[in-house]
Design a protein around this nucleic acid. Structure first.
Lengths: 236, 236
DNA sequence: ACCTGAACACCGTTCAAGT
DNA sequence: ACCTGAACACCGTTCAAGT
């Protein structure tokens, strides 16, 4: 925890701007204002320093963002018995979703920077491989199961919490409401028939995201289907 | 197809700057230079107009980006028999991946703007609902299956093609190579054991993405697991 | 209706200079 | 080693003015 300065830079006592304190505030800033309004300059002001100061600790804006993602995700670790692979994976997916729901604004970054994860949680990666091996996966099939777990973990939840452009949210909302309301019975019979259950609740047909309209039941079905799919893959 | 102007704005004959021609060039620009170097100003220069001209047709940068995504995805439509839901969904996922592989740089946008899809392919949404209904899904379970299909379609492929920051790619690569090479046997026994098969091939442990290192076999397993998971969900 | 031309308020990043 | 202060080369967006 770092004390937050308001206003312009200072020259006083506590001169410890560390990588960790920067990322703490970066995550807090993204939580508060969203990704679109995040800037290195705004982060500097929040820390009470000049923008250049941040670049001494983290050399680019992308490093700050990647660091923020890892900062949020570093504590993911299921506690279930690793020999019960179904229970363990179920808990993994739920715990991951809980973390994203605490920091929904970073959701898009997780996908974007899934390849730039030099600071990733490799202990978790190793445990996933361990659990899948105990489940019986081996050879190439182990790698396929691993990729399926990673994408199942990240995909649903990040999409569930994808957000409208911050500044223009209400105009987007208006357009989408009328667009979806205008899908008629002859052109779109299935959407029309289920419009009460689908509109503003499920993917593509919604204008609010998982922050206000969580897809709890769908997520639970997703977890179930993922595990059953893996079980089928195991004995293919 | 629109003829492309080089250099600064003009004042000559063909004065038809349409929404479609703008999006054509926006997609082309993103394909060429990537999302990080995309700008409205660069797009304007490519079209041979002043930046302000674009804003007459598309009122914000976000509209240009959302339009570009829809422009790429509007032609997705499987041809398989819709009464064979497994074959139809399999083709859907494969066709979707083929399109993303033609425009890999838009991958991150698909997730980000999955909620701002007023111009989405609603005919496809309706057909997915139709196919799932024929498969036997009904009530809430239909909506769960629908959400699973959407996320299975988008999640894996977008993550497969997530890219390193354009400008700093080679420095990231270097860091990741050494980081992964440094995961020792005692701390990370499973990663270490499978390092030959995993390194630079599978999620989190790679430094190249699906453009150069496609995850064909994993994707095929993902499709299989998704369908089998849905089949299990159907009879739960 | 559609576009120009120029302006405004921001960015990320760099770097000499200070301590 | 760490940060200041100011600069550079960009942005998205707006808007009077032209045609």
């Amino acid at each position: 925890m770092q004390s937050v300065k308001r206003g312009r830079p200072h020259q006083d006592s506590e001169r410890t701007l560390t990588q960790d304190s920067i990322l703490d505030q970066a995550v807090a800033l993204i939580d508060e204002v969203g990704l679109e309004k995040f800037s290195v300059r705004a982060l500097a002001q929040r820390l009470g320093v000049f923008p250049g100061a941040i670049y001494w600790h983290l050399p680019t804006r992308n490093m700050v963002l990647a660091g923020s993602v890892n900062h949020c995700l570093k504590d993911v670790e299921p506690l279930a018995d690793p020999s019960d692979w179904k229970a363990w994976l179920t808990e993994l997916l739920h715990e991951y979703r809980a973390i994203v729901r605490r920091h929904p604004n970073i959701a898009p970054l997780i996908v974007t920077q899934l390849i730039s994860n030099a600071g990733a949680n490799f202990k978790l990666v190793d445990t996933i491989l361990d659990v899948l091996t105990r489940a019986g996966f081996q050879g190439e099939k182990l790698y396929h199961a691993y990729d399926i777990v990673i994408t199942a973990k990240v995909g649903f939840v990040t999409m569930e919490h994808a957000a409208l452009p911050a500044e223009e949210a209400e105009s987007w909302t208006e357009v989408m409401k009328t667009t979806i309301a205008g899908l008629d019975e002859t052109g779109y019979p299935n959407i029309y028939k289920h419009r009460a259950g689908l509109a503003n609740r499920h993917f593509i047909l919604r204008w609010e995201n998982g922050v206000t309209n969580p897809l709890d039941a769908s997520f639970e079905a997703h977890v179930y289907a993922t595990i059953e799919g893996l079980r089928m893959l195991l004995t293919r």
